[in-house]
Structures are given as structure tokens and as C-alpha cells.
Nucleic acid binder design. Structure first.
Length: 586
RNA sequence: GCGCCCGUAGCUCAACUGGAUAGAGUACCUGACUACGAAUCAGGCGGUUGGAGGUUCGAAUCCUCCCGGGCGCACCA
């Protein structure tokens, strides 16, 4: 459990008593009363801002409230000492045994330590990756993929019922381009070697296996068909192949989606019509014209106002109304997307998370407005925009383009530097920070990469436990036996420090999940790893601080409990990031 | 022109969402391997949080205006 929450509840109980004793008035707003670790550890184990938050409402000097609160807090058995500091912070220290006892919780919960009830089993849909099925996954999509996947892990740990979803854009014109490109490869395969790939089609060699597949399934007969006959066949075939490719690519990073939703199928099943009907029913659709575009990269001379079918998007926070149908009667691009989000809502998700790149900024506003409109504002949509990754090669921009066929795939990068490194780097920043990803540096400096630092700490724990098996029987080192260790022996400042750090893990998980910020886990892990490394090195100077003390099995066993706990928390955090914890370094 | 995001130590990034003396890594300087794994540790150097106002007990965080950078702004997908 989150011990900070426990003490927050204790503080609020005390505040209630103070109300009863008429020290402060009743009906104060406690919502901002927090119990947190102080920024500076020398201030104490925990701090509450209660006096500061309440002073204005209570019309009382914050220090007075603080002094009184502190006095009453001291009566708590677990509280060792208190100190009212600065403008009215109440700092308090906990009994050392309280900390040591906390290890029991880690050991008994194991990998479930840090779980919290934030989500309360709420169904939540996270859509991520969703790249067009026109080729392998580009490295530019890696960040969104990794971010989405780790966010899902985090949300699951926070008790959300998470669905990992991939939206397959298999309905648009880009699939015609894909099919036509595959058709050229097919003809080349059938002997037209000198046939060039025309400008505007995909030249990538990944379409050669598709051509081979077409030949295996259809022989040469596609070649003599008119385009309107082969196009749908090859579209379908190529999309299936591309999705397979994409799934394999994603697996390299340990990513697997639960649900793949096809745009084509959505439309075939009439769901776009349904969403449109729904919007019409809500009286949000009308015929009209839009003002000229404001973008400077559009030639206004060629632009003309036409009557379109429009959505009253501006009533839902968009800058202007948006077309649902083009002037030729076809759906505008956003309409199937609105239908898709409506479909998710109808499937029972009230919270929809979309992980997209910042280049989808314009799209986000539209889909937000569209989703609010079609669901009658009953769905919470959280678009999370992941900033771009600048690819560099030794400091120089690394240019690539799908059309030119020179792009670097995600696979290239993962095979070069490893899934763990890629994931950790991408997650050791806030999502709205731009990342410079330099291939040369990542490979060269892989030894200095923070992921190794954390891995090393985990491997050290494992190493200690391996060595311990010479002193203890295997069953003595099992968690349920370690629970019986005498935790009171863990009373050095360094040990308490480590336990303190671990005890803040549940709190971290909760806040990271709530704010959708997996990067916090990465930073936490580095901190915990540092704690472990530091304690380890103290054992060199001071033999009393070694993990295994000859002739003192009681202390050794207690320390094994400590080490096992550290390993558990490290491994739990790495799991969220999707990085496998290593038992030894090579 | 408009919208969104970013600007924090030489460099790469944090800062628990308004908390106390803004922290890590890296680089640089000093020190620790007869080792429970030195891919590690201990210490030092390094800041007007882009700038100017404002809000309040309290601002890197919120508001306004500038400066600089990124991304976007079509019936394209």
C-alpha cells in the first residue's frame, strides 16, 4: 500500500479532531492536503503542507496550525519526531522499525508490490502505433510504440482494464499505391525485369516477398487482368502481408496488441454511416461552405469555396467546422476516424487514449471535437502527443523517406542496439521533449547508457543472492522464509534509506499512471539503482555493511530480505518499461 | 498570420503537477579495486530556470507581453 496515503489519512483524522476542539473551523477543503517525501531528505521522512493549505481558509497563522498539528501527530505510534519548518511545513520522522517492517510488504507481494487501485478495473482503451500498413515500421514510430506499450503496463499496474489497440488504416488511397507498387514487383518477378518503379509508388524491397506470395497464390493470371480486377485482390493481400510484417517488427520490442481494428471493415459494416446518422440525429450536421484556408503553404488562387457537408465542430472546441463529406459525396478523411472512436465508445470504453506524433496536432483537435460530438460528451478522450525523434548519424541529420526506399526501419535500430536500450532511451524523457537519437552515440556509448546502470544493480542483487546460497539453504532464501527475518537488524542509515526509497514506489506508480508519464518510472529506477550501488560500495570500506556477515546469520538473512526486495522493485519497474531484468551482465 | 509544444548547469535531461537551499547523468578536477562484480562508489566544479512584468505565504511550474526553436493549420491521409 501507499504509505504516504496512509499518513495523509492520519493527518486528516487529526485535522478533524482539531475541528472538534474548535482549533480550526469546520468544513475546510482538505483536497490539497498532501503528505509527501520532503525534497530534502534531511528534513525528515515525510512532510505535510496541511497548515499552509488551510491557513487562509481557517484564517489562522500557518505556523500555529502547524505546531498544533505536529503536537498531535507525535502521539502517533509510528511517528518518532516532528519539526515545524519554514512557513509551516510539518516534517516528521518515522520509527526505524516501521521502515524495516515495510520490507514484509514487498516480500509478500513480490511482483505485485506497487499495484494500486487507481483504475478500479475501469475499462480503458489505448490506441498506439497505428501506422499505415504500407511497409515495415519506421524508426520514427518507435517512440510512440514504446511509450504506448509502457503506458499500458503502467495502467495495468494501476488496476485499469487495458485494451491495447491498433487501428489499421487499410481503407485509403495509400493502399491503392501499395497495391500498385506490389503489382509492379509482381510483374518484375514474372520476367519484366527492366520495368521501373514509377515516381509516387513505394520502391521498397519489402514488397518483393509480397510479389512472391501473389505468384504462389495466383500464378501469372493477375498480370492479364484489368486493373479494377487485380486491384482489390492485391490490396487485400498486400495489407495482410504488411500487417504481418508490422506485427513481427513490434514483437522485436515486445509489443503485442489485443485488438486490431480495420478501417475498411468498419466502413464495410456500415459503422461510418451509423456515426454520420448519429451526428445528423443530434443536429450537428449541415450543408455549408468554409472560409479560405489560412495556411501559408496553400495557393489561394486555386482555392474555391464549395458547398460541403459539415460538422458543427466549433461547438466542441475546434477552431472551425469540419467537413464530413467532400463535395463529390465521399467521406472526408476525419469521418471514418470519428466513426472509429464512436465504435470504441460503443464497445464500452469511456476513456480513450490515443498516442500520436506531434505532427498530428491538427488531427487531434478534430478528433477530439468529433468524438465529443458523436458520443454526446460522454467519452473522455486523452490524446497524448509524442514529440519527434531526430535521427542523427554522428551529429548530422539522418535523412530518410519511405518513398525513396531509404528509410531506416525500427527493426534496423533494434537489431543494432537492442530492444532494452531503445525502450529505455525513449522512455527516459518526458513525451513532449524532442529526442536526438544519434545512432553512432547510442552504439558507442551503450556502456554509459542508464539502462545498463539499472541492469547492473539488478544483476548485483542476483549475484549476492547466488553467493548467499553457499551460506543458506535454498528454502531459507525464499520470500516466505525471508519474511521471518529480524528486520530490526536493518538499522543503519543506508539501509533505512534504501527501504525508504522502495516505500515510495507505490506512490510513484500511482502518480505516474495518473499523469500518464512512464518516464517517471525510468528516473525512479536510476535512483533506486544508485541507492543499491552506493550501499554496496560502503561494504568495501566497512565490512559490517556487507550483505553476508560471517557468523551473523540473523543479520545476513535480514540483508538478503533487503536485497531481494530491491531486486523485486527494480524488476517490477523494468517490467513496466518493457525491459527484461538481467540476472547477470555479460 | 493563427494554434499547440518546448526553452532549466558546457552537453543530455529531471523536478512528485504551486512547496522549503532547483536535482541527476555526462564532461572536467580529486580520491577508492590484496574485489560478496570498478559497467561501481565518495568528493569537488558548474544556475539571474530565455527576458520583462503580474497573481500569493511561496512560481521553473499559473496569467500577460516579448525573444528563440519545433510541430501543425485543405474536400490531402
Amino acid at each position: 500500500m501507499n504509505i504516504f496515503k496512509k499518513f495523509q489519512a492520519d493527518v486528516i483524522d487529526i485535522l478533524d479532531e482539531m475541528v472538534k476542539d474548535e482549533f480550526i473551523p469546520a468544513n475546510l477543503d482538505y483536497s490539497r492536503v498532501a503528505v509527501e517525501p520532503p525534497r530534502d531528505i534531511s528534513h525528515g521522512d515525510m512532510a505535510t503542507n496541511a497548515a499552509l493549505v488551510l491557513s487562509k481558509q481557517a484564517k489562522r497563522n500557518p505556523r500555529e496550525i502547524g505546531e498544533e498539528l505536529g503536537k498531535r501527530l507525535l502521539a502517533n505510534d509510528n511517528v518518532d519526531s516532528i519539526d515545524v519548518a519554514g512557513p509551516g511545513f510539518v516534517n516528521f520522522r518515522l520509527d526505524k522499525n516501521y521502515w524495516a517492517e515495510h520490507l514484509k510488504e514487498i516480500l509478500s507481494l513480490g511482483v505485485n508490490y506497487g499495484d494500486c487501485k487507481l483504475g478500479n478495473k475501469e475499462k480503458i482503451n489505448v490506441e498506439y502505433v497505428s501506422t499505415n500498413p504500407t511497409g515495415p515500421i519506421h524508426v520514427g514510430h518507435t517512440r510512440g510504440a514504446v511509450f504506448g506499450d509502457s503506458l499500458c503496463n503502467l495502467l495495468e499496474k494501476a488496476d485499469f482494464d487495458v485494451t491495447r489497440e491498433y487501428y489499421t488504416n487499410d481503407g485509403g488511397a495509400q493502399i491503392d499505391v501499395l497495391a500498385k507498387s506490389a503489382f509492379i514487383r509482381y510483374r518484375q518477378l514474372l520476367g519484366e525485369e527492366e520495368l521501373k518503379i514509377p515516381e509516387g509508388l513505394y520502391p521498397g524491397e519489402y514488397l518483393i516477398p509480397v510479389a512472391e506470395g501473389l505468384k504462389a497464390e495466383h500464378g501469372t493470371k493477375l498480370k492479364d487482368m484489368p486493373e479494377e480486377e487485380w486491384l482489390p485482390i492485391i490490396r487485400k493481400f498486400a495489407v495482410t502481408q504488411m500487417m504481418e510484417l508490422i506485427r513481427e517488427d513490434l514483437k522485436l520490442l515486445g509489443i503485442e496488441h489485443d485488438v486490431f481494428t480495420s478501417e475498411q471493415k468498419l466502413s464495410d459494416d456500415g459503422l461510418v454511416d451509423k456515426a454520420f446518422a448519429r451526428l445528423t440525429e443530434l443536429d450537428l450536421v449541415y450543408q455549408g461552405t468554409l472560409p479560405p484556408p489560412k495556411s501559408s503553404n496553400i495557393d489561394l488562387a486555386t482555392w474555391e469555396a464549395k458547398e460541403l457537408t459539415l460538422l458543427k465542430a466549433s461547438e466542441f472546441g475546434d477552431d472551425s467546422d469540419r467537413p464530413l463529406k467532400k463535395s463529390n459525396g465521399e467521406w472526408a478523411y476525419i469521418t471514418p476516424d470519428i466513426a472509429y472512436h464512436f465504435d470504441k465508445f460503443e464497445r464500452g470504453y469511456k476513456t480513450l487514449i490515443d498516442i500520436v506524433g506531434t505532427d498530428h496536432d491538427g488531427w487531434v483537435k478534430r478528433i477530439k471535437a468529433g468524438t465529443r460530438a458523436v458520443t454526446g460528451d460522454k467519452a473522455q478522450i486523452y490524446p497524448i502527443m509524442v514529440s519527434i525523434v531526430n535521427l542523427l548519424m554522428d551529429g548530422e541529420p539522418y535523412k530518410m523517406s519511405k518513398r525513396a526506399g531509404t528509410f531506416v526501419t525500427m527493426r534496423d535500430v533494434v537489431e543494432e542496439v537492442g530492444a532494452g536500450v531503445v525502450r529505455f532511451i525513449m522512455l527516459t524523457r518526458r513525451n513532449d521533449q524532442v529526442i536526438d537519437f544519434d545512432f553512432k552515440k547510442v552504439v558507442e556509448q551503450s556502456k554509459d547508457n542508464p539502462v545498463f546502470y539499472v541492469q547492473y544493480a539488478h544483476a548485483r542483487c542476483c549475484s549476492v543472492l547466488r553467493n548467499a546460497s553457499e551460506h543458506f539453504k535454498d528454502e531459507e532464501l525464499q520470500n516466505k522464509n525471508l519474511l521471518k527475518a529480524n528486520f530490526k537488524r536493518l538499522n543503519s542509515e543506508d539501509e533505512v534509506e534504501l527501504i525508504r526509497l522502495m516505500s515510495s514506489y507505490p506512490r510513484l506508480i500511482e502518480s505516474a499512471a495518473e499523469s500518464h508519464e512512464p518516464h517517471r518510472v525510468a528516473f525512479y529506477l536510476q535512483e533506486l539503482a544508485a541507492g543499491l550501488h552506493s550501499f554496496w560500495n560502503k561494504g568495501k570500506d566497512n565490512e559490517d555493511l556487507r550483505f553476508i556477515i560471517d557468523g551473523d546469520n540473523e543479520l545476513s538473512l535480514a540483508r538478503m530480505a533487503l536485497v531481494r526486495s530491491v531486486a523485486t522493485v527494480l524488476s517490477s519497474g523494468l517490467n513496466i518499461l518493457g525491459v527484461t531484468a538481467l540476472e547477470e551482465m555479460r
